[in-house]
Amino acid sequence: MNATDRTPADLLRSALAADPGRPLVTFYDDATGERVELSVATFANWVAKTANLLQGDLGAGPGDRVALLLPAHWQTAVWLLACSSVGTVADMAGDAAAADVVVSGPDALDAARACGGERVALALRPLGGRFPQVPEGFVDYAVEVPGQGDRFVPFSPVDPEEAALIVAGREFTGAEVVERARRDAEGLGLTGPGSRILSGDGFETWEGLSAGLYGALATGGSVVLCRNLGEVGEEALARRIESERVTAVVR
């Protein structure tokens, strides 16, 4: 975190410069038993590859709208930061028909077909696995992203005062995302580097995004992002909190 950071992508660059090896996102899916831990460096590499896919292969640029029909998931977090890197508007659970690009999980493919632009499908399988068969009318993210470049440079500078995020019908600039995430941090229990928040909230609200991604990124902390947390009993959750060294919990 740096006082001059104005966009979520800036926050990620600062985190990478400060301590690339520390954990940033640890993801659990309690319906499948999946656990994935991504360091700042690994997460940033996924973001760079995804931003190159978005800007290069999909032809998206500043101001274009990217509808993200995705649950709270580590790959969703990657796409949010990739959109910030390119300068596109990430529209969480947005109207695919109004989007230039749609990115869909397996449960939202029918809605995603309303997009007249580029369509990307995510299988959301463990270890970033592919679809057994690519959905018709889509490209498979897991097929397309590995060959993308590990370094990303936007074709046009990203303006922090332009729209960057739409969630629950409200639009935020990149600068507003950073400022609000910093304001939220204390209430979430994120007190600075070393803070580790466990979140079971979805990404369909600002509060879920703040607890599950932006708050940790804005404070030098990390997040344990849990999907299907209702599958976990209280004793198992307590063990996870202890083993993951969680310092704050949002459910």
Score class of each variant (00 low, 15 high):
residue 238 A to G: 12
residue 128 G to W: 03
residue 109 L to D: 05
residue 44 A to Q: 02
residue 106 P to Q: 15
residue 97 A to S: 14
residue 142 A to E: 10
residue 114 A to D: 14
residue 11 L to H: 01
residue 49 K to W: 06
residue 152 F to K: 00
residue 197 I to D: 02
residue 224 V to L: 08
residue 75 Q to V: 09
residue 32 T to E: 12
residue 124 L to G: 07
residue 233 G to N: 14
residue 119 R to C: 05
residue 250 V to F: 04
residue 149 G to C: 13
residue 53 L to S: 08
residue 137 G to N: 13
residue 239 R to H: 13
residue 32 T to A: 13
residue 170 R to Y: 15
residue 117 G to T: 10
residue 48 A to R: 05
residue 232 V to N: 04
residue 221 G to H: 00
residue 196 R to Q: 06
residue 186 E to Q: 14
residue 98 A to H: 11
residue 8 P to W: 04
residue 237 L to K: 10
residue 162 E to Y: 10
residue 21 G to I: 11
residue 73 H to G: 02
residue 75 Q to H: 14
residue 211 A to E: 08
residue 22 R to G: 05
residue 239 R to I: 09
residue 52 N to A: 10
residue 55 Q to H: 08
residue 221 G to R: 00
residue 50 T to S: 14
residue 194 G to V: 09
residue 14 S to L: 00
residue 251 R to E: 07
residue 182 R to P: 11
residue 64 D to R: 11
residue 189 G to H: 06
residue 97 A to Q: 14
residue 148 Q to S: 08
residue 68 L to Q: 06
residue 96 A to H: 07
residue 146 P to W: 09
residue 107 D to K: 13
residue 246 V to E: 00
residue 55 Q to I: 02
residue 162 E to G: 12
residue 115 C to H: 08
residue 201 D to N: 13
residue 77 A to M: 07
residue 144 E to V: 08
residue 165 L to S: 02
residue 207 E to D: 12
residue 109 L to E: 07
residue 48 A to Y: 02
residue 208 G to N: 06
residue 105 G to F: 12
residue 139 V to F: 05
residue 81 L to D: 01
residue 72 A to N: 05
residue 115 C to N: 07
residue 120 V to R: 00
residue 196 R to V: 01
residue 61 G to L: 03
residue 96 A to P: 06
residue 191 T to S: 15
residue 2 N to P: 15
residue 168 A to G: 12
residue 88 T to V: 11
residue 81 L to C: 04
residue 167 V to W: 00
residue 50 T to I: 08
residue 224 V to H: 01
residue 98 A to L: 12
residue 208 G to H: 04
residue 179 E to W: 09
residue 182 R to E: 12
residue 138 F to A: 08
residue 140 D to E: 15
residue 40 V to D: 02
residue 65 R to D: 06
residue 21 G to Y: 11
residue 163 A to C: 12
residue 51 A to T: 03
residue 2 N to M: 15
residue 174 G to Q: 00
residue 174 G to A: 03
residue 156 S to F: 15
residue 199 S to L: 03
residue 184 D to V: 03
residue 109 L to Y: 06
residue 50 T to Q: 09
residue 18 A to H: 09
residue 65 R to F: 05
residue 191 T to W: 14
residue 149 G to S: 14
residue 225 L to W: 00
residue 241 I to K: 04
residue 114 A to C: 11
residue 101 V to A: 07
residue 214 Y to A: 03
residue 15 A to R: 06
residue 60 A to F: 06
residue 231 E to R: 15
residue 70 L to D: 07
residue 64 D to W: 06
residue 132 P to E: 13
residue 228 N to E: 14
residue 176 E to T: 10
residue 55 Q to W: 02
residue 88 T to L: 07
residue 153 V to A: 15
